[in-house]
Design a protein around this nucleic acid. Sequence first.
DNA 1: GCGGCAAGTGTAATAACATAACATATCACG
DNA 2: CGTGATATGTTATGTTATTACACTTGCCGC
Lengths: 137, 137
Amino acid sequence: MAHSHDVPTDLTRNQGLVLGALNHSESPLSAYDILDKLRADGLRAPLQVYRALDKLVERGLAHRLESLNAFVACADEHCHRKGLIAFAICEGCGKVDEFADSVIEERLGHWAGAKGFKVERTTMEIRGKCEACVAAA
Amino acid sequence: MAHSHDVPTDLTRNQGLVLGALNHSESPLSAYDILDKLRADGLRAPLQVYRALDKLVERGLAHRLESLNAFVACADEHCHRKGLIAFAICEGCGKVDEFADSVIEERLGHWAGAKGFKVERTTMEIRGKCEACVAAA
DNA sequence: GCGGCAAGTGTAATAACATAACATATCACG
DNA sequence: CGTGATATGTTATGTTATTACACTTGCCGC
Ligand SMILES: [Zn+2]
Ligand SMILES: [Zn+2]
Ligand SMILES: [Zn+2]
Ligand SMILES: [Zn+2]
């Protein structure tokens, strides 16, 4: 099993199924990947997955990776990560490393303050190769 | 006119048309937006646009905004921007501000070095409201 | 000039990602 | 109960991106 999060108990059936699929995956899944994994559980339409994903992302239990059009479960055990989150995505094995960096966050805040830009959401995704994949190359 | 770049002369016809469309737009354009603007010039298929965009992005003359699935012309007059580029995208008016920040770049490099992660490409996109749109709200 | 190759182009078909619209169900709460 | 808010099921559709194949163009060496 990729992760062993304690899944919140107040999720609806579909939300629970979708989060379960993400938690059991080593790498990001597209909405259609998730749908395929959950057909056995009765899901039939993309919208069922997208709706669940919307809620999960809204609650910070999952994240959307814009550069992949795919989703991952939040790596934070207690799902309380605040502020800017960055993702390092390995092109070799597909693994994603989620991290926060307060220096970067502060720096961005500084830029935004100077420009009068009101930040609502930030996407930060690094593509490359993880240590294992570099070694294997 | 939104921009007044000197367009490089060694572009092919389709590349020139696509870059022209981007340069004349105030905000990012999807590939299909571009296609619609260029039908009068004889373009008919998405692939013609995507192929041109690939080359333009490769040369740094245009950038892809992952969180919008859209493209902008590079804002740097001489198209020599190095390293990490960040984009602040206004949800109100659609305008995009392109900037570089060496502190953030260095910080990311530091993280990558510590993790043994080999960075190939970084996406950084801030969504929010620009000063004008905040004032207008 | 001409064969051969690389890069670019044209076109159709299809795949992959995402949402609109509408009907029904479920549950909290007064 | 009645009513509203939230979730669900289903079909159809819209949007973004790629595959496959045929043809053209410019260039280099012969
Ligand atoms: Zn997280
Ligand atoms: Zn890897
Ligand atoms: Zn640029
Ligand atoms: Zn604005």
